[in-house]
């Protein structure tokens, strides 16, 4: 039983640590991206639906090829993040059941938050991919084109679902990264938990205003919808 391990110089296997680190790193990258993304999209509100600011920003990204390159990269990061995070997900039915029974019985805030995060993840995977595909195949981005998309078919509904999912996932994710990696301490947990709640609400709020703006105010590009490969969802 007792072996003198002090002198042993065996190298430990570090894969799990690396995967966990990458999960965190991709999470952080995506969080940062989503905030930047929010600036782009919500900028349409700045000139009350005129779209000049938004077009300017979008233009900048395309002119520098950041959108053309960045888009697929983001998609890959997203996929990678999914694969990393999915390692933690209970795919076996009995594990899911145990988790669900536990969560309902225990009725504990942070445990519920994880359930929300895991559930939103799958919605994001599907809806986010559709969205990404649509946007990236209809470049360049302009406010008018976005408005055209949002005012067509099921797109508004898609965003109404995707938006809260993303914001919850991002908010909870950021908070949880802080907790798991020890940046949020026992003494500061309450504060950051409050922050996380507020941030999610504010983000959803801005997103909703943006959607309303696109739906009601921004003048759509009438010829646009014909170009997209998924025109009438």
């Amino acid at each position: 039983m007792y072996t003198q391990t002090v002198a042993q110089a065996k190298e430990p296997v570090r894969n799990d640590a690396m995967y966990d680190f990458l999960q965190m790193a991709t999470g952080v990258a995506l969080v940062l991206f989503m905030w930047a993304h929010m600036i782009l999209v919500a900028s349409v509100n700045l000139d009350f639906g005129g779209g000049r600011v938004m077009n300017f920003i979008a233009n900048f990204f395309e002119a520098t090829y950041m959108a053309q390159l960045g888009g697929p990269v983001i998609f890959l990061v997203l996929l990678f993040h999914f694969f990393m995070a999915a390692r933690k997900f209970p795919f076996r039915a009995e594990e899911q059941k145990a988790m669900w029974t536990h969560t309902v019985r225990f009725n504990h805030m942070d445990t519920w938050l994880w359930i929300i995060q895991a559930a939103t993840a799958f919605i994001i995977l599907v809806l986010g991919s559709i969205h990404l595909f649509s946007v990236l195949t209809t470049l360049p981005i302009t406010a008018a084109r976005s408005a055209a998309r949002i005012q067509t078919g099921w797109w508004l509904l898609l965003y109404l679902v995707l938006l809260p999912c993303i914001e919850l996932h991002v908010g909870i994710g950021a908070y949880r990264i802080g907790v798991k990696w020890g940046w949020i301490k026992r003494s500061t947990r309450e504060y950051f938990h409050g922050m996380e709640n507020k941030l999610s609400f504010v983000m959803i709020g801005i997103g909703l205003i943006t959607l309303i703006m696109f739906y009601f105010i921004v003048t759509p590009d009438p010829t646009f919808m014909a170009k997209t490969p998924i025109p009438h969802m």
Binding site: A9, R14, D16, Y19, D110, R176, R186, R189
Partner: peptide
């Protein structure tokens, strides 16, 4: 305790160990 970081790593540095923790904080509470 004269164990090195590597030795601690060997013991808890896996997905069944610390890297499997989801940060649920049920324990803490």
């Amino acid at each position: 305790d004269q164990r090195t970081e590597n030795e601690y790593f060997e013991v808890v540095g896996t997905d069944d160990g610390i890297f499997g923790c989801l940060g649920l904080l049920g324990c803490e509470d």
